[in-house]
Design a binder for these strands. Sequence first.
RNA 1: GGCCCUAUCGUCUAGCGGUUAGGACACCACCCUCUCACGGUGGGGACAGGAGUUCGAUUCUCCUUAGGGUCACCA
Length: 515
Amino acid sequence: MTHCPIRVRFAPSPTGYLHVGGLRTALYNYLFAKKHGGTFILRIEDTDRDRFVDGALESLVKSLEGMNIVPDEGVFLLDDPHTPARVASRHSETYPGVSEVGSYGPYIQSERLPIYAQYAEQLIASGHAYRCFCSRERLDLLRESEMAAHKASKYDKLCLKLSEDEVANRIAAGEPSVVRLNVPEDRGDIVFHDLVRGDVTIHAGNVDDQILVKTDGYPTYHLASVVDDHLMEVTHVIRGEEWLPSTPKHVLLYEAFGWDTPVFSHLPLLLNPDKSKLSKRQGDVAVEDYLAKGYLPEALINFVALLGWNPGQGSTKEIYTLAELALAFDFAQVNKAGAVFDARKLDWLNAQYIKALPIVELVEKASPFLREKEFFTSAQDNRKTDEYVTRVTEIARERLTTLAEIGDEQRFLFVEPVVDSALLPWKGNSADTTTEALVRAKDILADIPDIDWTRQRLGEILLAEAGEKRGDFLWPLRVALSGAKQSPPPQDIAWVIGKDATLLRIRTSIRLISE
RNA sequence: GGCCCUAUCGUCUAGCGGUUAGGACACCACCCUCUCACGGUGGGGACAGGAGUUCGAUUCUCCUUAGGGUCACCA
């Protein structure tokens, strides 16, 4: 164990928010590291200057930490209050506020340019790569003709024929060029092992002379990730299935450098309901959107973990903490087929987490959502206290799918309801019967001492008073208190709004029905 | 189109040669019940098709079909 510690990395590019697919990839990396006492690295792959999005890196790191997937090594934010104090090994030159931990840095690829240039030169010197001056126009034409001929589109190695002198002259003349991988034509089959898919075989003849360094001097993903994974001593490359077709190129690069290949694990894709690769347009895909809608990080983690993995062995367990996942995780149980992201099951899981949360924590997490609602803002001050919010939360919790919904179906706990007198009588009862029930309720409730004004006692008292015909008694009372066709039981409403408001609402309805 | 990957209820999945093919979400019914929600009980619902291997295939092999991914100076 000490001679080969496991090291894995999550390596997003800062082009936007954290995607749920990215979250799952990060999670599996994290779980695998935790399971084996390894190291989880966060590396940033920002080698495309055109796709750079301001603030994306910060958003990515923040989302990850919001999900409690905290890297052991690599990039972190200096000012994030959720980040435990860590000793920075260096600060980013390009991203203010971003710092790093670990001795394999920089962990931001744009800050490693000289390293890639050096390894690219090494590849050229050893004949594993070559300069290419072909114009984009020529490449487009080439691609079109090959596609038309129903062949794989590959570069034709034209520039490989250039003499050293000619290459030197053209570079000296300032002509732009790229560096291409020289795929050996006699290489035969490339076989690599994948923890999810077993042995994968691709014929080298189908592999293109991939561009490794662009005209602007930046490396492409293929070069940068191979060099970094090697230098950072990454043992397991765990990434999405979309990388499977380019893995042979990476294997070729490891061979060209004379390096050992890491173990690969290509995770099944997360899918839209129509089975295409999960994308925006067919629902939310940003982790931050789910958080904003009141999904709990624990529920999202739990849900996403079970998309493509399960503990097997006949387990029927559905609810897992992060620690339990780390304990149970195993690539032998990772599925090969893509998984449809079914938001309804996420809803169910989230509701389960909401129901299981200690009330104090639930209030803490839900009240920010409640406090920004219009009906809350305009409510009386005595309905804005922590104690009141706690009672509301208790009533609402078993009806919540997401935290953001809190109070939506219980506005009458904050605002006086408008009662429709036609709704007051229970199943064809007369106005008199209804009035009698309400008067009886008012008298009973008025006599209840403060100490008995609890959710449980109110329930006992009202149920006892209702006797056999509960509807006659409870329905008008419930409508008087809520104004709604559907609501929590009257004793719960009474408990939350308190005696004064309860009696007031009953009197209002009595007056209403006798008009 | 080339290459690659994949295939159990609508969805997530268990299964790793012999099972009444199990669970969860969703759906339906019933129960609980003043309504809603929660909860409980039950129900319908799947091995894509065809060959082989085998005493025996959901499970192993091949083919077909279907779906997906990828073929950028993006990752």
